[in-house]
Amino acid sequence: MNPPTSTWWTWLAVAALGTFHGINPAMGWLFAVALGLYRHSRRVVLLSLIPIALGHALAAGSMLIAGLSLGLVIDHSWLNRICGTLLLSWAAWHALRGHRMRPRVGMQTGFVGLAIWSFAMAASHGAGLMLIPALMPICSALPGAGGAAGAAGPTALIAAIALCVHSAAMLLTTGVISLAVFDRFGVSGLRTKWLNFDLLWTGTLAACGLVQLAL
């Protein structure tokens, strides 16, 4: 079964969110660069991308599956309200407490520790929650969207494809930035060209919540 193609913008939004998550240094590229510099190895930078992507995909996929599965048993209008409220609440929490809850991982960590760190960061930033507003319209248009038995299979397929598209965009972006910083710019440039991603991320979460409530 092929996913609906009439809402092509949905897949563009999913990929764009992956790119946005990849740009955020908290999602992994800054740690990959730091680990590569510590071990004086470009290969370490590249290998670090694998556990970073896996941890991010697991966190985003868990939230995505939970949200879309809930949509199989309750009315989508109620799900929109629930997800919108969660996104706004998460934005408020992130603004007040998120910067104080960073997991600590040292430069001696292995790839398992890096995957766990990536999972924790993606989960604490609500990465998976952002995907639900983008996918809700396409899931609502599925045949049998109001019943779990009729829509479970198509919903699972859409969730899997969305996660792959999102993760691929995130991995590509993270890899490009990591190599660019490691090979050319260096982390010293961040002292003068730093963007407040915490503030940007909080605003994005709130914007996604407002969009969800408006659906």
Rank of each mutant, 00 (worst) to 15 (best):
W11T: 09
H56D: 10
L49T: 01
W9K: 12
A59P: 08
A32Y: 05
S48K: 05
F31R: 12
I50E: 02
W9L: 15
F31S: 10
L37A: 12
A26E: 08
A34T: 11
V14N: 03
G55W: 00
P25W: 04
G18C: 12
P51Y: 06
R43I: 13
H56T: 14
H21R: 04
G22C: 08
G28W: 04
L46P: 06
M27K: 01
I52K: 03
W29L: 04
L12G: 15
F20Q: 12
G18P: 12
W9C: 10
I50S: 07
A60R: 03
R39Y: 11
V45F: 03
R42M: 11
L37C: 02
L49E: 09
V45C: 05
A16G: 15
P25F: 01
M27E: 11
V33S: 09
A57V: 07
W11E: 12
A13P: 06
L35E: 05
G55F: 00
A26W: 00
A26S: 10
Y38V: 07
L30D: 09
F31T: 14
P25I: 05
S41L: 08
A32I: 05
A59S: 15
A15L: 15
F20N: 11
V14P: 04
L35H: 12
V14I: 15
R42C: 08
G36F: 00
L58H: 00
I52C: 06
V33W: 06
A32W: 00
L49G: 06
L12F: 14
A13Y: 01
A15E: 05
G18S: 13
Y38M: 07
V45R: 04
L58P: 06
M27V: 07
P25D: 06
